[in-house]
Every structure is written in C-alpha cells, then in structure tokens.
C-alpha cells in the first residue's frame, strides 16, 4: 500500500478521535513482538502471522521480530513489559486468557497496566460432548444440576476456567471442573469417556466434529459461528444465559505508558494486517477463528468489561 493511503488512514483515525493530537509516529528501529508463550502455540502463531504479513505485504519499513518469553505462564512477559514502560518499539500479542490470569492469579503486573492497541481475532469456545451422550445443551445443563457431570478443561485461572465459572453461576449448574495439561489431553479424556463434556476451540475439535464423533452442544459467543459445521450450534445466550460469554480473544497490547501517536500507528498497522487476504484465508479461516477487529479505544472498553464484569466471578467462587 502506498504512503498516501497510509496518511489518509492516519488522518481518518485522528478524525475519529482514536489518536491523540500527536504528530505522526513511525518506528525508528526494529519492533520487538514479545510473545508470553512458547514457540508453536496459538499466541505464537498469531504473532508470527502478524510479523509475516507485515513483511510480505510490506506494511511497514521496520522489521518486526518475534521473541518468546514463556516463563511463569505469561507473568514473566508482563513483568518485562513493565520495565519497558514508555517504549514505543514493543508489542505484546496475547490471548485474553493471560489478561484474565493476571487478575485471577493476582500477578504483580496486571492487564490494565498495559496499553491496549487492538483486538485482531476471536477464537470461540464450544461445549463439546461425545455423540449420543446428550441430546442437546439443555439436557447437559439439566443433568449437570446433579453435580455429577464432569467438565474437562485446562489450566485454572484462565479463560477456559472463566467460561466454566460463568456457566455454573448463571445456569445454576454444578459441573465438576477437571483440569488437564492441554486441549489434547481433554480430547483424549472425552473420547475415552473419562469426562462428560469438554471445552474446545473450533480448531481443537473440528476433525472430531466433522467425523461426527464429538458434537458441539453450544457456543460461548454472542453470535452463532458461520460455516456448515457450526451454524446450527446455538449460543448459550440464545438458550437463556446471556451472561455466559467467553472466548479466547486475540489482543495486541503495548507496554505501559505507550505514546498515543505510537498507539495510533500500530492500531492502524494492525487494522491493515487484518484486512489482507493472507490474514483472512491463511490464518483466520484455516485455524477456524472468527474475524474480529477493535481499535485501541474499543479494545480498552472491551477489556474493561471483561475484567470488571466477568472476572469477579473468580472471587465469588472462592478463588
């Protein structure tokens, strides 16, 4: 894309009140993308795709290099970002689960300390069960009131756990939380009939859904997911639980106190990344994500809503 288009976009962004009065910002050196997870996971893939698209579509002059800092399930990256306050050459692509963890697990540095830049994609949550185990989501929810239905999921204090707590609270269920080392283990346990239901991202069980061995009962999203496999799956909101909303939303943060002009620059850059064909087909579609883009201000509001309205459920559950 040419420079003039970029300028127009920047002007538009300023006019919309997204950017401050600041002068145009452009990175003067390499930009570090600090990934709070190991190489190879979902967050890492997200970061590497952003860096790849920026490079292949020549969206920026400086190069974006991915640096993995997986320590402490993300707490190390948060602490590192805090030492880089005001640094305009650092981005942190992150899953919202780690922002939730920073509150639920009471990390020293928390999600609101960072500078929100953009929301780039959404990885939805589905409740899945073996075919024939439950007729539909309502039957599973009714059965779970007995307190004997097990719910396979991964680490506590994360967005999976949040989805579970919201479901139990608002649907008055007593699902039993069973903690596994990762979604692969949850799927093994579900197929081996060791747990009754499991929480999955579409990409984690699309193979099983297509084969008909596992049935998606309901989604935790606000709207139904499009596509042949998912369009008939109701949302929990439709079933009468509008408060039960959770997903692994992919957000990009900056370190604390990032300059407004820099935020506007990166916000605009990420918007253009999410508009490329490569992003839409090679990343979003192939990984069964849902397209989603929010600017800096909307991302801030969105995070505030999750943190203020949903995260307190951890405390209520005695966590």
């Amino acid at each position: 894309m040419s420079n003039s288009v970029m300028r127009i976009l920047a002007v538009a962004a300023t006019a919309m009140g997204l950017a401050g009065p600041a002068a145009a910002f452009e990175p003067s050196r390499n930009v570090d993308m600090i990934v709070p997870a190991s190489a190879g996971g979902g967050t890492d893939l997200n970061a590497r795709t952003i860096a790849e698209v920026i490079k292949s579509d020549q969206l920026a002059k400086s190069s974006f290099q991915v640096i993995n800092r997986p320590g402490g399930s993300g707490a190390v990256a948060f602490s590192y970002a805090a030492t880089k306050a005001g640094d305009d050459h650092m981005l942190m692509p992150i899953a919202i689960g780690q922002i939730i963890s920073s509150y639920a697990l009471d990390w020293e540095v928390k999600g609101k300390d960072m500078t929100p830049i953009a929301t780039v994609a959404n990885d939805e949550f589905f409740l899945g069960a073996l075919k024939g185990r439950f007729k539909d989501a309502n039957e599973a929810i009714e059965a779970a009131k007995s307190g004997k239905i097990t719910f396979g999921s991964s680490q506590k204090g994360n967005s999976d756990h949040l989805a579970y707590l919201l479901l139990n609270k608002h649907a008055n269920t007593k699902f039993r939380y069973v903690q596994f080392g990762g979604s692969g283990e949850v799927m093994s346990a579900l197929l081996g009939k060791h747990v009754d239901v499991g929480l999955f991202n579409p990409s984690e069980f699309v193979g099983q859904v297509r084969a008909g061995t596992v049935v998606p009962l309901a989604s935790f999203s606000t709207e139904r997911m499009p596509g042949e496999l998912w369009k008939d799956v109701p949302t929990l909101a439709e079933l009468g639980y509008p408060e039960v909303v959770a997903a692994e939303t992919r957000v990009v943060l900056g370190p604390p106190k990032m300059d407004e002009a820099a935020v506007a620059y990166y916000e605009n850059l990420l918007r253009r990344v999410t508009e490329t064909d490569r992003w839409k087909t090679d990343y979003v579609e192939r990984n069964n994500l849902s397209p989603m883009f929010l600017g800096a201000k909307e991302t801030q509001d969105f995070l505030a809503e999750v943190i203020d309205r949903r995260v307190p459920v951890f405390k209520e559950a005695g966590f």
Binding site: G71, G72, A75, F78, Q155
Partner: peptide, 17 residues
C-alpha cells in the same frame, strides 16, 4: 494445581510456572 496460583515461587515471576 488446586488454586491455579503459584507455590514456592518466592515472588519471582520466572518461578511461577
């Protein structure tokens, strides 16, 4: 595992996992 938080980390983020 029970609480999801960290144990024996002595306040160091690097030891939390």
């Amino acid at each position: 595992l029970a609480r999801g938080g960290s144990r024996f980390a002595f306040g160091l983020p690097d030891l939390m996992s």
